[in-house]
Amino acid sequence: MQNVVSAHFAKENKMDFNGELIVATVSDQNDDQIFSQYQGVTLATDKSQVDTELAVGDEIRGFAYENSSNQARLTPIIPKVGMDRYAFGEVVEVRRDLGVFVNIGLPDKDIVVSLDQLPQLSRLWPNRGDRLMIHLSRDKKNRLWGELADEDTIHAVANMAKPTQNNEDVQATVYRLKMAGTHVLTDDFFLGFIHPSERDAEPRLGEHLSARVIGVRPDGVLNLSLRPRAYEAISDDAAMILAVLEHSQTKSIPYTDKSDPEAIQATFAISKGAFKRALGSLMKAKKIRQHDGITELID
């Protein structure tokens, strides 16, 4: 009987506490489930989630929600996202007609972030594996939705950057797309901004990026770039020479910037000038060194 009540509660009750932390009263149980009552609704809890033995009349505290099968559930494993709790959740599904589904830690329920909150250009929507900072909301039908964290919330959790962070490498998540540029929050909770001139393509909302700090603003926001440092942007010639070195048993080649042009042309199919430029960029990047007529990799 309890299973029937649980499966069909939505037809008889309004679960206006969907997504909230509650304390319910145990009313029954079987081998797998514990059933409890709260405001006339029967909620089911997997016994595997409960550490102690419970009897009828005991209290059980947990997160109440309606799962993807429209069943009332109560889990003592509190998800990281709540009505008043913001956290990152991973995007697990994309529906162009609805929005994106985000995993907040529930075993049988993902939370939808409506397409109304997503960019107009679908190519800038999050992909599976991207992440969004959200909290929960409940609509007039008591259904749970994910709401993107607003600017005030992002700023409230952010740290103040310091000038000493200039030139650091950072990992960051895109939380806002604007005409002026891309706004991100680093993994260490610093605010960052990427001007369009510092990227090859506009990142997606929720995309996790590798960036470098090119400046620290007086307000503590990091100016970031997605472009490599000059010495990291090695040419095709340099990449080819590097590959030859890496595949050599001795990690070296019997050529330097003093080698004979014809030998260089015969071996690498490039001019001596191009060879010298490639070696120069690799030495600047501290990837190679030259001595005694050879060029070798630096460990």
Rank of each mutant, 00 (worst) to 15 (best):
Q2C: 10
A7K: 12
H8R: 04
F9D: 07
A10F: 05
M15R: 06
M15L: 13
E20P: 00
I22Q: 01
I22A: 03
I22E: 00
I22C: 04
V23W: 00
S27I: 15
N30G: 06
D31M: 10
D31A: 14
D32V: 15
Q33R: 10
Q39C: 03
L43H: 03
T45G: 06
T45M: 06
K47R: 15
K47S: 12
K47Q: 14
Q49I: 04
V50Q: 03
E53I: 14
A55C: 04
G57M: 12
R61V: 08
R61I: 05
R61E: 14
F63C: 08
E66F: 00
A72L: 08
A72Y: 04
P76Y: 02
I77D: 08
G82L: 03
R85H: 05
A87K: 03
E90P: 00
V94E: 04
V94K: 12
R96E: 14
R96D: 15
G99P: 04
V100F: 06
F101C: 01
G105I: 07
L106A: 06
I111T: 06
S114N: 09
L115W: 05
D116V: 02
Q117W: 05
Q117F: 11
P119F: 01
Q120E: 14
S122T: 14
S122M: 05
R123W: 02
L124M: 02
N127W: 02
L132E: 14
L132K: 06
M133C: 14
R138C: 05
N142G: 07
R143D: 14
L144K: 08
L148K: 07
A149V: 13
A158K: 05
N159W: 04
M160C: 01
A161E: 07
Q165F: 14
Q171L: 07
T173L: 00
V174K: 11
Y175L: 12
L177M: 13
M179P: 01
M179D: 13
M179T: 10
T182K: 11
T186H: 06
D187K: 10
D188H: 10
F190T: 03
L191F: 01
L191G: 12
I194E: 09
S197Y: 04
S197R: 13
E202K: 07
E202H: 01
E207C: 01
A211Y: 07
G215Q: 07
G215F: 06
P218I: 09
V221R: 12
N223G: 05
R227Y: 05
R229Q: 12
S235Q: 04
A238R: 02
A243D: 13
V244P: 00
L245N: 11
E246D: 13
S248L: 01
Q249N: 01
T250Q: 10
K251A: 11
I253C: 05
P254T: 07
K258I: 02
I264Q: 08
I264N: 09
A266C: 00
F268P: 02
I270D: 01
G273S: 10
L279I: 11
L282P: 01
D292C: 01
G293D: 08
G293E: 03
T295P: 11
L297G: 09
I298L: 15
